[in-house]
């Protein structure tokens, strides 16, 4: 009963806040779902930040706090994460990539109620060995299209072996296709390669010495010219 009262008074406060803040509309009536996708050799990282606006809080929280006790239990968190990720598909070159949850952070309900809280999900998928060359990773987030706006972006890869070439999306950014190039690790050099490298290093050292000597001559000449001026 106390919880119910607390919840209803908090809802009233949020409604009052919403009414008085209508001119300061900070994503009040939408559920912002921002996805960032990182492609690295051997894995794909998906980061989803979910921010329910105050006006859609009740609708979103109903799917999280299912027993309506005002507390989001560990089971309810896991179930919600599963529901969100169940609506996300990830494919590499037309092959499905199953996503696994890595971490999930839920803010306090009050923060969510104020439109300030962000549910942060991190998920990952193993990326099979890829041939060198062009590939396409597709991401689709179909969670709550009735109230949501979406952002989907590829992150700059940390590895030099992956290069993002282009990103294509539908108008609402529910779906994102990332064109990228994969490059395998450079192969160990052959004996002939090592020999060629050694020759090149010696050549550079000899050339470098020659350049250094020339530079010294140049500086001596400049000092002489300055003195005569």
């Amino acid at each position: 009963m106390v919880r119910r009262l607390r919840r209803s008074s908090a809802a009233a406060a949020a409604a009052a806040l919403l009414c008085s803040v209508n001119l300061s509309a900070h994503r009040m009536d939408e559920y912002l779902q921002a996805a960032r996708i990182g492609i690295e050799p051997g894995r794909v990282d998906v980061e989803l930040y979910l921010t329910p606006g105050m006006a859609v809080f009740d609708s979103v929280i109903a799917a999280i706090d299912r027993d309506r006790d005002g507390i989001v239990s560990a089971v309810e968190k896991n179930d919600y994460v599963s529901a969100v990720l169940g609506a996300v598909t990830l494919r590499i070159d037309d092959r499905d990539l199953p996503l696994k949850t890595i971490a999930a952070t839920f803010p306090e309900l009050d923060a969510l109620r104020r439109g300030q809280g962000i549910i942060q999900l991190r998920a990952g998928a193993a990326l099979p060995a890829l041939n060198d060359g062009a590939h396409e990773l597709t991401f689709r987030n179909s969670h709550r299209p009735d109230v949501s706006v979406y952002l989907a972006n590829a992150l700059v890869p940390m590895s030099g072996r992956i290069a993002i070439n282009a990103q294509r999306r539908d108008h609402a950014q529910i779906a994102l296709a990332i064109d990228f190039t994969a490059r395998s690790e450079s192969k160990p050099a052959s004996i002939a390669g090592w020999f060629a490298a050694a020759v090149a290093i010696v050549a550079v050292l000899i050339g470098g010495g020659h350049i250094t000597r020339n530079a010294r001559r140049f500086h001596r000449a400049m000092r002489h010219r300055t003195a005569t001026l």
Binding site: E30, V149, L151, R169, D170, A172, Q173
Partner: peptide, 10 residues
């Protein structure tokens, strides 16, 4: 031009 709506700061 990006052919999609950008609803907020990324």
């Amino acid at each position: 031009i990006i052919g999609s709506k950008v609803a907020d700061l990324v």
